[in-house]
Design a protein around this nucleic acid. Sequence first.
DNA 1: GCAATCGTTCGGCGCCCGCCGAACCGCAAG
DNA 2: CTTGCGGTTCGGCGGGCGCCGAACGATTGC
Lengths: 234, 234
Amino acid sequence: MTSASDLAALAALLADETRAAMCLALLDGRAWTAGELAAHARVAPSTATEHLHRLVAGGLLVERRQGRHRYVQLADPSVAELLEDLASRITSRPAAPSGLRAATASAALRRGRTCYDHLAGQLGVAVTDAMTSRGLLEQSGGFALTPAGLAWLTGTLGLAPESLRPGKRPLARGCLDWTERRQHLAGLAGARVCATFLSRGWMERIGSGRAVRLTPHGKAQVRDLLGLDSPDVH
Amino acid sequence: MTSASDLAALAALLADETRAAMCLALLDGRAWTAGELAAHARVAPSTATEHLHRLVAGGLLVERRQGRHRYVQLADPSVAELLEDLASRITSRPAAPSGLRAATASAALRRGRTCYDHLAGQLGVAVTDAMTSRGLLEQSGGFALTPAGLAWLTGTLGLAPESLRPGKRPLARGCLDWTERRQHLAGLAGARVCATFLSRGWMERIGSGRAVRLTPHGKAQVRDLLGLDSPDVH
DNA sequence: GCAATCGTTCGGCGCCCGCCGAACCGCAAG
DNA sequence: CTTGCGGTTCGGCGGGCGCCGAACGATTGC
């Protein structure tokens, strides 16, 4: 029976609305301070402290103390994937944003965003589709990189082969986008692609959130490298 | 914030040790009666009723009334996959069985068993490895069937192509075996392979549990079709 | 050193939920 | 019809847990 109690203990970490809201907020991959999360979840700072202690003790979050701030973030990409799997069972539509400012922010999120550490939104789906149609990615029999896809990552994109060694984390993995209702590339390869886009200046974050957009240079690059010329991402 | 409450509600279904034990028991893919689950979880029948109501209302279980019995089983293969994903985060070792009878039953389970609807245990890992070494399955870049693998399923194994059309469920998927610590084939293809082994008489269930073993005919078939001749599975 | 801010600890409150037993319903077998 | 059994409903009990406010500790800035 010890396995059942372990499973229950793990599920109990997410079985509270406040903790669930915190974990979903952390799905953007960034580190949040305790105060930010308390405000986001609309609870007193003391309450947030208790919840964060439980989440850290349960292994879902890691903390980093820095000055008088305590930053927390998801402990592991596998935690993000687990949260995505759970969230994919939720069919709820996000409520329509009310104001103009919220609407434009929402539109930016739909266009492109990071989902923990990989690309999502229309941009993520478009990149995934382009890789598939070019024979770099196999989706019909699962979600896997082809040999050509591996060569593309190490050659064209210039990634070090050792950075693509699958450890506990699968190299390629599908992640269901909740706005596009489409699968997009996640896993180790998805993370490397996203990091490369950002580090090369092909893509930049909009404000401090998880929304991203291609730079002019990035637009030219994805057009040349992936044949991607859709107005959705430009 | 409705998404956070939905996630919390979903997690709350598994956040109780009794309900978690019920769901783990149902991972064998069979339908259990309410009384069986009550005894398994060591709670009063009235308590089991309440838990089953919640699990059914939450969409994790479906029920089928038959005479004076009420059978429940997992609602969907995706529920089984979700449970497997959660369980894979649990590192606990199952306690060593005490008696001889428990030991032999445990050995049979290690040799071969069903994991919801696909093969697991040493048999499941061996089949997966054999398919990989024969170029039917790709594991290095993800978990996907190769074109040769698709042809093998429809040709050699005689499966109808329409029975392999991936809908919501991925065709091939890795499932981490908690005794072997190895990935084995799950997903739609894994389910079809397991069903074929059983329907053709290559494999039979031991008793009423989830343990399985190859028949003499089945041993010859997997040797011919997959080059599988390991004493582990014979 | 002092003030402001961020985070933590502690005590207490209230609610939710998991548990059981007892009574009841419905199907099956004799 | 009667008996037996599987399952359900209901009431009540107890404990755990999520919440807050207040007091305290820690760090940064003035």
